[in-house]
């Protein structure tokens, strides 16, 4: 899951010279992930992993890093 998220983020949302050096706990917000990017990321994750990510859980803490994102998505309810 993390690899898919990472591939999407660095091909569609943030430019990074060498994503392979970007760590799972590195700060995505500092790297340039903004509100529009978060919106597209949520759409991607909901479709790709079949989950529902409620509006009320969209918080800086949940999108801060690849690990945070993965944890958030893993505990999210499946789209029935």
């Amino acid at each position: 899951m993390k690899e898919q998220l990472k591939a999407f983020i660095f091909s569609e949302l943030i430019y990074h010279e060498d994503p392979s050096v970007f760590g799972d706990d590195d700060d995505l917000l500092e790297a340039g992930l903004d509100s529009m990017g978060i919106m597209r990321l949520i759409m991607f994750a909901e479709k790709e992993f079949g989950v529902i990510l409620p509006d009320t859980e969209i918080e800086p803490d949940n999108v801060q890093s690849l690990n945070a994102l993965e944890n958030w998505i893993k505990q999210a309810p499946q789209n029935a």
Partner: peptide, 30 residues
């Protein structure tokens, strides 16, 4: 911080009884 937490942002607008806001489209789209 609320610019990255849209549900808390709208809750804040309600709790503060905000009557107007001049901002950028990206925040309003969010």
């Amino acid at each position: 911080k609320l610019t990255l937490a849209p549900a808390r942002l709208s809750a804040w607008l309600g709790e503060q009884a905000i009557s107007g806001w001049y901002t950028v489209p990206s925040l309003l789209a969010f």
